[in-house]
Amino acid sequence: MAKKTPNINSSSTADIAFLLLCYFLMTTTMGDKTGIQRTLPKIPESTQQKDIQINRRNLIQVKINSSDNVLLIAGEYATVPVPRKGDKIDDALITAKIKEWMANRGHSEQLPARELPDKPEEAKYPYEVLKGVVSLQNDRSTHYDTYITVQNAIVRAFNELRDEEAFARFGRHYDELTQDEADVINFIVPKTISEAEPKDKNKTK
């Protein structure tokens, strides 16, 4: 005679369901907000000198015009219009050029200097600092996504320079450094991205 197999007790399926639910509650994340972090410069006091003198060789200009075309200017050394790949700007070129100019591996007199800070005794670290400054200028009719692409390319150039410096100095990637080592790298390669003061439209408040 066939033996009836006893039914599996199904009272624990509810427990399994609750456990699964709790697991997914703990592990799902609401869409993380990500973005490019920037720090704006303070408004200069009316008494302060408005234009800080930068040595011509240390300045690299990135200009975006109203038709979303980008031009890179490094003093008299080179002027590079950035071509478009279809609809998109060749941001890899922007990153590569900025890196090449900032790093100045060939120690050209026309490209940014790498020197000890002004007062070596008072400086945080006794290392040479990259003195290059990237100046970003855009027109009021430039589109935001072009601006973000260019910002991204510039930030990327700095991040890659920091990574290379980290490798040269500590033999590891920038992400793997301790906080103190990262501070040293941040000191040597500061993110000097300056954005032009917009032309005042004479706002009377």
């Binding site: 990500t34 973005g35 490019i36 920037r38 720090t39 704006l40 303070k42």
Partner: peptide
Amino acid sequence: KQELRRCNALKIMYQANK
């Protein structure tokens, strides 16, 4: 951005997807 500078709210983030 100019208005944020006047308010001294200097930490900004341009929201963008990875």
